[in-house]
Nucleic acid binder design. Structure first.
Lengths: 107, 107
DNA sequence: CCTTTATATGTCAATGATAACATATGTTAT
DNA sequence: ATAACATATGTTATCATTGACATATAAAGG
């Protein structure tokens, strides 16, 4: 009976999608694609209050999408598992498809 | 200046992730992977009240993830763009990775 | 045209997420 | 020890989503 394990799996799927469904978190992940950044660099790049960025980073970290490394006063964040970029990329492809072939619900 | 278009794009990305971050909608999409089903078949498979399924199907349809075809009294739903399965699959891969290498936040 | 079956839509209370703000912690320099 | 900087954490009001329930529409059969 692996139903429980499967449920676990689905819960985590859901959690990942939930994480990605927020523009701040999504932008952070995209920003971290190639390079690590300090909190303040992220704050300045996104133009969003520091505490909010820290909150979102904490959530991303809790779900192991990013990891951090403290150097001096600064805390640098990077992607923990670049695999997540595949998810973002295939969604981007899907969205491209949908936005191009905007056949139906163009209300 | 394609900033506006880009914003559009990111909004739709967000919307797709939001759609996927709900277990009912996710299960519906997975169920529709290979075959179309009527509303009632989905209701019975998932054991969730009909009105709720209809609500979620309407949301999925609005974002063009599914389409429907009425045959007699029944309304059959199928994936509108199977591309979305790639998104689900790459997320599944990511989650597998995370669940296996549960190194860090195992609190 | 009345009933049954199948599905959609409307409403709203309960729950969850976000944004905004205040404050705390930790590090470095003076 | 104090100040300045960088970041994290706590709290709460606001807003969005979900779940539950009632009702509406639409097709088919009698």
């Amino acid at each position: 009976m692996n139903t429980n394990e499967e449920q676990n799996f689905k819960n985590e799927m859901e959690a990942v999608f939930k994480l990605l469904s927020n523009h701040i978190r999504l932008n952070i992940l995209i920003m971290l694609e190639n390079k690590q950044f300090s909190v303040n660099e992220i704050v300045e790049a996104l133009g969003i209050p520091q505490s909010q960025i820290s909150h979102q980073l904490a959530i991303l970290k809790k779900h192991q999408l990013v990891s951090s490394q403290k150097i001096g006063k600064k805390n640098f964040y990077k992607l923990d598992d670049p695999h997540i970029l595949n998810v973002i990329e295939s969604t981007a492809n899907h969205v491209k498809h949908v936005l191009q072939g905007k056949s139906h619900s163009e209300v």
